[in-house]
Design a protein around this nucleic acid. Structure first.
Length: 814
RNA sequence: GCCCGAGUGGCGGAAUGGCAGACGCGCCGGACUCAAAAUCCGGUGGGGGCAACCCCGUGUGAGUUCGACUCUCACCUCGGGCACCA
């Protein structure tokens, strides 16, 4: 067998890959006839943010995994649409632009160009005719249009909200940019809280529906769970205490059964009733405290110092259950954003209240007697397994039962009701920055906020030089009078444009709907194409977007559906989260200096080898550990495969060998199933095994019919090489217009099997037998085995376990 | 603190409750070569034995089972998410 191809036939990935990149473009192999495709399959991958650093291995890993799926679907007969674009607005681009002192509008196109080149280099089956960039006015026109639709539907509203402010950056920061109370870019600079008017989308109106739909989504379990936790539904009751002037102070609690133990109440510092509840002597103390709370940034107030602070307001409220007067406190461990911004404190059965009671010497009244099964019996006892004490007529009742009983008792008195709460907040979409789509609103003194009419969209982001944020609370756009002074579209009076831009998450909340319709300038998404291609067939992306991006895109889709603009409310038929590539067990990061730059590996080994190597590192949905040494193994495999194909091309052999035939069909089955389950690592291992068998097999070189299916199964992983092989064995057309090999059960079946013989559960021998051997036959064969005999002789057989096709276990009486 | 996920050779990893370590890397030995690289062939969890074989072994400890990497409980370590959410 001639295994060494001659020199001019050696596999040179650079040559092969260049050839097929060009060929694919010439032949328009990756373009899809969107209007007429019979069998549409929308294969979506998360579009990248085109950073200045270029493509990261993490991106390559994500895209390749999705591409393999798409290419397989194509071979299985689908018309696969695999578009890609760029998520190029946002604070990261803007900060980088400020750092290198270049306008983002100049920077971004360069980054995109580099990204596009790199992406083409890795051999994705992308239809570049439908590329989008969120910074393109032709795109953000429709982002603004979507804002207008939600605004008109009453889903966009303006309200005051606290934001993080970095005095050094002179701008608003997202929560994740605040680290230990300081700015991520200025670790010495404390972040403050400011209170600004912001635009919000009323996503909380959809909380229950978003949660309900999550149940039926075909998503990675981890992603679903994260999102459900984020929405954070909780059940409880709103109970009404009465303030000093008789005003109702509603508190939210999940434990209305413990109301008899509520010995004080707490208002958040921002609570609107704080003033009314403050006694004259406490006025200045309370005011000071509120000022301090406002000074603190949002993040450190929540996660920073956990030592509780608070002040007595000087007045009392009436507990609706006991009728007793309980003191009113102001403390920042109670958050205005959740529930009613006020709580009843039950120190005997809540850790936080207990800590507060100890600190300020407040009374503790136990009202739950824990069951004997409860391990921790020291106060505070936090459990549902107990019965009420010190609770009047409810004494002796179980906690869960008491929740219902007490809630309805108080409801009858007009002092409470059952209540469901969500952790989810409304989606703040205002950014007091430059690099984003201007929010398409005009503020008129007479008409209020008015949507920019459709015919005036897009509101172009003006190309200004001084886009640096300043000390004020407003966007850099506010400094440009000639831009923001406009007449009111409704009454014509002098009015002002909204100067905030929108959150990048809005750009990405609908981008998948745009891809099929990029040819249209007069509509966001064409009804017919949208009907044909959406919802997305499969979406693959990272769990870092499990919560926000996926939640927001679900919300926008749901809202557009309710407005009758699209015919589906769930954007993705299937979502799978991929894992992360780590290096030596650590996350790759610039600060660790362990970032792998894909370019040099692709240069040295070729894109096909690099693609396959990434997929071979570990299960796709878990990620893997990148170590440069291993890549040679994949390259060796491809070299050997190439030689086998070269040899087969000139071979006269056919698939005569039954063993090869069997292995082939077992491989088809395994690879097909593994790709379906995104187990690319084991699919590749199966291909390797098959090639090993081919090489070790029959006397002559393998025949074409033995390698042809191998080439087909290789194609999703190593598309360039597969094309080259396909051509070599005599095909004119692209391998991706061929059909996935068909699995034949009968050909895969083994006639003779090896049965393991165990004695008392330990392997003592092996016997070969017919596939359909019976228990008795197997036992007879087993007992004839010398090694087995040694362990059985002289003992009494108690039981024989027989697993057809697997093993026989002889259990002895001891 | 709460909710997930994971702990298997020197390394990445594989195993519907049924032969632990597939596949690959690395390493060792051999062939080819003046030599090296590449390539090819063979070996490779630990311990004992000349050998046939035997014992131990999937983070720790218990349990269920004829049989446990796999199921149950408790614990340890690592990774991810949430975090004063009442």
């Amino acid at each position: 067998m001639n295994r060494t191809p001659d020199a001019r036939q050696a596999y040179d990935p650079q040559v092969v890959e260049k050839k097929w990149r060009e060929r694919w473009e010439e032949r328009r192999t990756n373009a899809v006839d969107l209007a007429n495709a019979a069998n549409p399959y929308f294969n979506l991958m998360m579009f990248p943010y085109p950073s200045a650093e270029g493509l990261h291995v993490g991106n390559v890993f994500a895209f390749v995994g999705s591409d393999i799926h798409g290419r397989t679907r194509r071979l299985q007969g689908y018309d696969v649409f695999e578009p890609l674009g760029f998520d190029a607005f946002g604070i990261h681009s803007e900060n980088y632009a400020l750092k290198v002192n270049t306008h983002p509008a100049k920077l971004i196109p360069k980054n995109i160009e580099r990204f596009r080149r790199q992406l083409k280099r890795i051999g994705l089956m992308v239809d570049w005719d439908h590329e989008i960039s969120t910074t393109d006015p032709a795109y953000y026109k429709w982002t603004q249009w979507i804002f207008v639709q939600l605004f008109k539907a009453g889903l966009a509203e303006r309200k005051k909200a606290p934001v993080n402010w970095c005095p050094e950056c002179k701008t608003v920061l997202a929560n994740e940019q605040v680290i230990d109370g300081c700015c991520e870019r200025h670790p010495e600079t404390k972040v403050h809280q400011r209170f600004l008017e912001q635009w919000f989308f009323a996503i909380t109106k959809y909380a229950q529906r978003l949660l309900d739909n999550l149940e039926i989504e075909d998503w990675s379990e981890s992603t679903r769970r994260m999102q459900a936790n984020w929405i954070g539904r909780s059940e409880g009751a709103e109970l009404i205490f009465k303030g000093p002037g008789g005003e109702a102070i509603p508190v939210y609690t999940t434990r209305p059964d413990t109301i008899f133990g509520a010995t004080w109440i707490v208002l958040a510092p921002e609570h609107p009733l704080v003033d009314a509840c403050t006694g004259p002597e406490q006025r200045s103390t309370v005011d000071d405290y509120r000022r301090q709370a406002a000074e603190k940034d949002l993040v450190s107030r929540k996660v920073g110092e956990k030592v509780k602070t608070g002040v007595f307001a000087g007045t009392y409220a009436e507990n609706p259950a006991t009728g007793e007067r309980v003191p009113i406190w102001i403390a920042d461990y109670v958050l205005m954003e959740y529930g009613t911004g006020a709580i009843m404190a039950v120190p005997a059965h809540d850790e936080r209240d207990f800590e507060f009671a100890t600190q300020f010497d407040l009374p503790i009244v136990p009202v739950v007697q824990p069951d004997v099964s409860v391990k921790n019996r020291e106060l505070p006892v936090v459990t549902w397994d107990g019965t009420l004490i010190n609770s009047g007529q409810f004494d002796g009742m179980g906690c869960r039962e008491a929740v219902k009983a007490i809630t309805s008792w108080l409801a009858d008195k007009g002092r409470g009701r059952a209540q469901v709460q969500y952790r989810l907040h409304d989606w703040c979409i205002s950014r007091q920055r430059y690099w984003g789509p201007p929010i398409p609103i005009i503020h008129c003194d007479a008409c209020g906020p008015v949507a920019v009419p459709d015919e005036d969209l897009p509101v172009l982001l003006p190309e200004i030089d001084d886009f640096r944020p300043d000390e004020s609370d407003v966007s850099p756009l506010a400094r440009h009078e000639e831009w923001f002074r406009v007449p009111c579209p409704q009454c014509g009076a002098k009015a002002r444009r909204e100067t905030d831009v929108s959150d990048t998450f809005l750009d990405s909340a609908w981008y998948f709907m745009r891809y099929p319709s990029t040819d249209f300038t007069d509509r966001a998404f064409d009804p017919e194409l949208t009907e044909r291609w959406l919802p997305v067939s499969q979406y693959i992306g990272g769990n870092e977007h499990a919560v926000l991006h996926l939640l927001y895109s679900r919300f926008v889709t749901m809202a557009l559906y309710d407005l009758g603009l699209i015919g589906f409310e769930r954007p993705y038929r299937r979502f799978r989260a991929h894992g992360t590539i780590v290096r030596d067990g650590n996350k790759m990061s610039k600060s660790r200096g362990n970032v792998v730059i894909p370019d040099e590996y692709i240069e040295r080994w070729g894109a096909d080898t690099f693609r396959m190597y990434l997929m071979f590192l570990g299960p796709y949905q878990e990620g893997g550990d990148f170590r440069a040494e291993g890549i040679a193994g994949i390259r060796r495999f491809l070299d050997k495969l190439w030689s086998a194909v070269c040899a087969a091309e000139s071979s006269t052999e056919t698939l005569g060998d039954a063993a090869i035939q069997r292995k082939l069909h077992q491989t088809i089955k395994k690879v097909t199933d593994d790709i379906e389950g995104l187990r690319y690592n084991t699919a590749i291992a199966a291909l390797m095994e098959y090639l090993n068998v081919l090489r070790a097999g029959a006397a002559g070189d393998p025949g074409v019919d033995a390698v042809e299916p191998l080439v087909l199964m290789l194609a999703p992983f190593a598309p360039h090489l597969a094309e080259q092989c396909w051509e070599l064995i005599g095909h004119q057309d692209s391998v991706f217009n061929a059909a996935w090999p068909e699995f034949d059960e009968a050909s895969a079946r083994e006639d003779v099997i090896e049965l393991v013989v165990q004695v008392n559960g330990r392997v003592r021998g092996r016997i070969t037998a017919a596939r359909d051997v019976t228990k008795d036959e197997a036992l007879a064969l087993a007992l004839a085995d010398e090694a087995v005999q040694r362990h059985v002789t002289g003992k009494e057989v108690k039981q024989v376990i027989f697993v057809p096709g697997r093993l026989t276990n002889i259990v002895l009486r001891d």
